[in-house]
Structures are given as C-alpha cells and as structure tokens.
Design a protein around this nucleic acid. Structure first.
Length: 434
RNA sequence: GUGGGUUUAGCUCAGUUGGUUAGAGCGCCGCUCUGUGGAAGCGGAGGCCGUGGGUUCAAAUCCCAUAAUCCACCCCA
C-alpha cells in the first residue's frame, strides 16, 4: 500500500481499531486531555490558543539559538504566498508569552494562569516516545516571582499524574540559579574539564563548549568516571543568595504539601530561557524516553522577546509519553461510550418511524438507529456491538399499538414503552447512568 | 546526524535447498436465524509478499538501493 502517513506522526483511532500499539486510541488521548483540563481549571487556569506556526525569529529568540531544537529540529513553513520565515512551533511557551505581550494581557489580574494543549513539531529521528508531531499540555503562569507559584505549578503536575492513576512517577527537582550563577558554574566546569578534555567522549567534548552542565548527566562510563574522579561540585553550590532562598522556599512548600521529590543537580533544561527552579517528571517503565514532562521558571523570557520584564514559570506534559506510562502500568482507561439507546425497525415500513424517534430522542441523549430493517436477532446484535445500554425494536405489532419494545442489554430485562413516553424514558435512563 | 533489527491479507503470523494457483488464526461481510444480543457451524470478500533495480529458465525466498517502522545514541515531551 502506498498510503503512508508522514514519518513520526500518529493517527488517533476509534476504540476497537486494530494496530493500536502503533497509533493512538482517540478516547485514551481525550482522557489525558480531559484529566489535565479538570485539574488546571480547578486551579484557575484559563485556556489560551495560539497558532501552530510562528515567526521563526520568535522561536529562535524564545527557545534559544544554541539549542538542538533551533539548530536542527525546526520545520520551516516555506510557502504562504506573501510571507516565508514561519516555523511549526516546537513548544508552546514562546507563543504564549508572545500572545500575552501582544494582546496586553498584563492588564489581567496577576499572576495570570494560562493553559493550552495541542500539537508540537520537531524534525527528530523517530523512536519510542519521540515523534515529529507530538502533543503537549502546557501550563504557564505570568507575572509572579513568588516561590509559592513554582511549588503550585509542580503540585499541579503531580495532581495530573495522580488523577490519571499513575504511580511510578518521580519528580526530579533542581535549580539552575540566576543567569550569573549559571555563568559562574559553566566557567567552573570548563576550567575543571578542559585539562582533561582528551578523556571526554566526543559528545562531551562538544558539550564542553556548548553547554558544560550537560557533561554531568552523560551516559558515557568514561565521562562518569572522570566526573567522580574530579569530585565535581553541584550547581546548587553556585546559587546566589536570592536563588538559594527561592529554591529553599519551593522545597519547603512541596514538603509541606506531601509532594515527594528528589533533588537532582543534573537537571539541565534544554531550552535557553530557564532560570532558577527546573524540574522533570520521570517514569520508571517507559524506556529511554522516561521524561513525561518538565518545567521551569523563565523570568527573562519576555524581555528577551523584546517586551517588558514579566516573570514567568511553566511546564509541559507530553501526552504521548503519559499514554506510554499509562500503558506500562496497565491503568484501565475509560473507553468510548456507546449510545444510550439503539433503535431498529423490524420491517421496512417502520424504518422511517424508528429514525424519527431516534432524532427526537437526541434532544435528551445519544441515540442511534439502524438504516434498514433488521431481524430481531440482528437488531440486538447490532445494539450490542455498538455498546448501547438499551436496544429498542419496532415492528408492525408495536407500531399498531404505539409502543417500542425496549431491552436493557446488561440485565436482559425487557418492557414496552409508549412512543410518547420515550423522552421520559431516556431522561430516566440517563439519570440512572450518572 | 549515527548504529542495529524488522517489513507477506484489516490484525498477529506461517511460507521447505529459489519451482506451478502464497496459507492459517482472528477480524469483516453473508447464511443457518420472519420476533430476541455476546455462541457455534457453513460460506464469502480481501495480497503488486513495503517500493525500485539486479541475478536466474524461474524470486515472497538471493544481491543492491530506497522508504517506512522498531530499538538505542544524541537530544528531548
């Protein structure tokens, strides 16, 4: 078959579709989205929508020119007639901050909590948990430097994970300090490693110039041996007074609220705009791509984009990563619901009547109908296959007496319902369901 | 960008040292079934053997390329 979806993308398919291991069950995806929405809206977050593509320059300045995302993972949108220079968004924060600045949202009561969800695009090589189009849930808070906001943001991620039913999740927490702290630490690392550059892996030689902090979580055994040997001081030792106090406060809140976390000095956010608090949520059973999501504070981003100083903090979950974790833990997800009632005529004369009754019933609930006459056996079989709660048949007997023959498919109980009482019946049935 | 594996029906897979018309199970459709669902039996549809070259009298099978996919590195969600 020549039909082939683009590399690194997935289809979202109805329940019961074959081959779901490679694609996504739409109802599972919706479950994750709905859960996140519920948690975030209870916290007062408001939805914000932004375009899927943005000016390349916005992303370059927002995400950072030295990051892999900008260096080699951006999809350029070439042809829009009157304008080039757009890229498909690789993450959500730059767009949201742009929208905040452009639309004067600074007028709204601060701190402003925003959330969004949608596809992100990166020109990656594909592997498990890494796609070219993937989906994130984003939460951003603008207009506060309070460590309580940091702690609440982390708590919200934890709450989403809990409500999803995941248990094997760890919070890794760190602080990368203020820019001058990070600068000092990077200088320290460069001075420390440069004399031993010959012993570093090729990747880490590159990291030495680009981002020395990355050397610390290298997977190379030689690198790790060298790190132990040199007795490297952690980033946390280099925090300035303000960043240190901020970080202590975040930890105190989390501890008080019972959110477990592991201090991890090797947390290095890949995006340039982060400062101070940085964290990731990891899962123990999802292979090499164990990060379910991560976040951090980005107080300098708004100014970097050319706006006024607006402090911010945010996080993103990868929905596909969460689905992998749910699958790994065997969490049972609610499937797509069936109709409350499936209506079928037993003879051709009543097909139109059955359809009309179904359409009327839709004022109350989800009602489906058969498009041609069915034998009784097939009528109930169809209703069952559609996972209906009730099946109703109408043949010449019923039509003559103005009733429907309604069967509860779970209990097998069967009774007649007058046509004019169908609405009442549906209302009651729906109440029972809830 | 790098390394390795895989690719045959909608799905999961067989397919002998290269040999005539490529099979199974599940699923799908129909019938048994003109008044009662999940079952069973019978029947049916469905294949450019990922794609393009090559070797050969002959290729699903051997060789090369390419694509997709999976696993990992890098990096990240």
């Amino acid at each position: 078959m020549a039909l082939q979806r683009p590399k690194g993308t997935q289809d979202h398919l109805p329940d019961g579709s074959p081959k779901l291991s490679r694609d996504v069950q739409a109802s599972a995806f919706a479950f994750v989205q709905d859960t996140a929405r519920r948690v975030l809206e209870r916290a007062g977050a408001q939805f914000i929508g932004t375009p899927l593509f943005e000016e390349a320059e916005l992303v370059r300045r927002g995400v950072g020119g030295s990051t892999d995302i900008v260096r080699k993972e951006m999809f350029t949108v070439y042809y829009f007639g009157d304008h080039g220079g757009y890229v498909l968004r690789p993450e959500g924060t730059a767009s949201i901050v742009r929208a905040y600045l452009q639309n004067g949202l600074k007028q709204l009561p601060a701190p402003l909590k925003l959330w969004t969800h949608g596809p992100m695009f990166r020109a990656e090589n594909v592997q498990k948990g890494r796609l070219r189009q993937f989906h994130q849930v984003d939460y951003e808070v603008l207009g506060s430097t309070d460590p309580l906001v940091d702690a609440e943001a982390i708590w919200l991620m934890w709450a989403v994970v809990r409500e999803l039913g995941l248990t094997g999740v760890r919070v890794k927490l760190g602080s990368i300090g203020d820019p001058e702290d990070r600068e000092a630490y990077n200088s320290y690392l460069r001075e420390l490693f440069t004399p031993h550059e010959g012993r570093l892996s090729d990747d880490s030689k590159d990291r030495l110039t680009r981002n020395p902090m990355r050397i610390l979580d290298s997977k190379s055994a030689e690198d790790q041996a060298l790190i132990r040997e040199l007795n490297v001081n952690p980033m946390l030792d280099f925090l300035g007074e303000a960043a240190r106090a901020h970080f202590a406060a975040v930890q105190a809140h989390l501890t008080a609220w019972g959110v477990p976390f592991d201090l991890d000095p090797s947390i290095v956010r890949g995006l340039d705009y982060y400062r101070r608090t940085a964290w990731e949520l990891h899962h123990t059973q999802v292979g090499a791509k164990s990060a379910l999501g991560g976040g951090g504070r980005y107080d300098g981003l708004a100014a970097q984009l050319g706006g006024p100083e607006v402090p911010g903090i945010g996080w993103a979950f990868g929905i596909e990563r969460l689905l992998l974790a749910l699958e790994a833990e065997g969490v049972a997800l609610p499937g797509q619901a069936g109709p409350l009632l499936f209506l079928a005529a037993l003879d051709e004369e009543n097909v139109g009547l059955a359809a009309r009754l179904a359409l009327q019933g839709r004022a109350v609930a989800r009602v489906e109908f058969a498009y041609r006459a069915l034998k009784p056996g097939n009528a109930f079989k169809e209703a069952d296959r559609r996972r209906a709660r009730y099946a109703a048949v109408i043949g010449s007997n019923e039509a003559a007496r103005g009733v429907l023959n309604v069967k509860n498919l779970a209990s097998g109980e069967q009774r007649e319902v007058p046509l004019e009482a169908l609405k009442t019946f549906l209302e009651q049935a729906e109440l029972e369901q809830a």
